[in-house]
Design a protein around this nucleic acid. Structure first.
Lengths: 237, 237
DNA sequence: TTTGACTCTAACGTAACGTTAGACTTTATA
DNA sequence: TATAAAGTCTAACGTTACGTTAGAGTCAAA
């Protein structure tokens, strides 16, 4: 299948297909002697993955890393994408609720605070903050001076630094597994993580750029290392 | 309210607020002697509009045009944005349906065509095509050689050129109103447009860039002209 | 008064394409 | 078979919407 046909089938521009080939994101399986790109069914399935991740806000660089990772599995990726699309739908519904209330407000039917007007716009929120809100309740998060919160934060930072220090080790090493157990126990001080949920969280560390960005502040590649170690930890229980 | 507070309230970065001020999209009501920006409640309500339109994929330039249009009314904009958010939610649901079917396909539970894999990805679709599908049914659209379809297309193009020729006239001129009546009648050969729906469609011509882009191919500013003429036509019935 | 947080302007950099141009290739028709 | 139109290529500049960095000025609390 050549570029025009792929473009019409998928809605992606020819220029974009060239671009994706140039950056190695989606390389056609064949190229004719004239230089024409020929895309296979496998290429189309990959393109679908790319488009889903793109729709979810992933950078092309990140998408490329995910797709080329040795541990990448299409079915798992689809399930992860599905979860994230459901979250995105929830956000959209929050925005709809906000706009409905704003319409009522414009009609004089209610009063809205400025804060309420921006519900649903979660652009810069730190996912830990969202996680923490869900776990601790809103009040605890706002009382950032509380002792319990401080202790948790300090413990989190301590374990991050520890893991960053040993990230050159194998994910199944004794040191790594001890630290990850600490992490698991810490998270279960906050809330209730099953082993499956813990494993899924590790995947999110790598798949969701906001997590990766935050974690890798402690050390390049730490999110990946933690994901791997978390996988080992769960598999050994 | 200064930039940091606005940023934390809304999730928009300080750099973005600077940028929006620079391009005249969101200009703070006050600036201190030191040069500090002070945003009012009115500014925040405008920002909400900006963010909704941005979420819907509007360029900042276009958002600025909409907000500064003499006919801009916040309540109408909110209702339009709501409609568009609902459409976006539908698209997301189509993507979810596609991903669910893809998951089943990966598990060997069904077979998917390449076309089915890209349902929900409507990036480049011409809105007329979507409109036409809804009006004529899918079969008629696919039979693009059918005589009826050809006649409609020809009539559409004829009226577009006619309107493009006279767009320097006033929207309430006799010529404009005659042409718009032709347009209304043509659309009602396709489907069933109430006057209200016709008026709403005119708004979409200007608010939705895909419409604007397609219509303005016949002449710069034609979408706006048609919107105005359609408003006049409806108000005079 | 000092210090740290806040804010400013300026400017370069980035990501992801869109657009334009010229040259080569393919396809359908006369 | 020739021709014209459609298709495809590479290259390169342009666009949009910020992010990042830098240096300087401002404000508020101790």
């Amino acid at each position: 299948m050549k570029v025009k046909e792929v473009s019409e089938l998928t809605g992606v521009s020819i220029r974009t297909l060239h671009h994706y080939d140039d950056i190695g994101l989606l390389v056609p399986d064949q190229v004719t002697e004239a230089g024409y790109r020929l895309y296979s069914d496998e290429n189309l399935a990959d393109l679908q993955q790319v488009l889903f991740f793109r729709e979810l806000g992933f950078s092309l660089k990140h998408i490329k890393e995910l797709l080329s990772s040795p541990t990448f599995k299409r079915l798992e990726a689809l399930e992860l994408q599905r979860d994230m699309l459901v979250q995105k739908k929830s956000q959209l519904e929050r925005m709809l609720a906000t706009i409905d209330r704003t319409i009522q407000s414009e009609k004089g039917e209610n009063i809205m605070t400025n804060e309420e007007k921006f519900k649903g716009f979660d652009f810069a929120k730190n996912p830990y903050e969202e996680e923490a809100k869900a776990r601790w309740g809103k009040k605890a998060v706002e009382q950032t001076n509380s002792q319990f919160t401080k202790e948790i934060q300090e413990d989190m930072n301590r374990i991050y630094y520890k893991l960053a220090d040993i990230r050159h080790l194998e994910a199944d090493s004794i040191e790594a597994q001890e630290a990850i157990e600490e992490w698991f126990l810490l998270l279960n001080r906050i809330g209730s993580y099953s082993l499956d949920a813990f494993k899924g969280l590790g995947e999110m560390y790598v798949a969701d750029e906001r997590f990766t960005k935050n974690i890798d502040q402690f050390g390049e590649g730490l999110a990946r290392f933690m994901r791997d170690a978390m996988n080992v930890y769960v598999d050994q229980q």
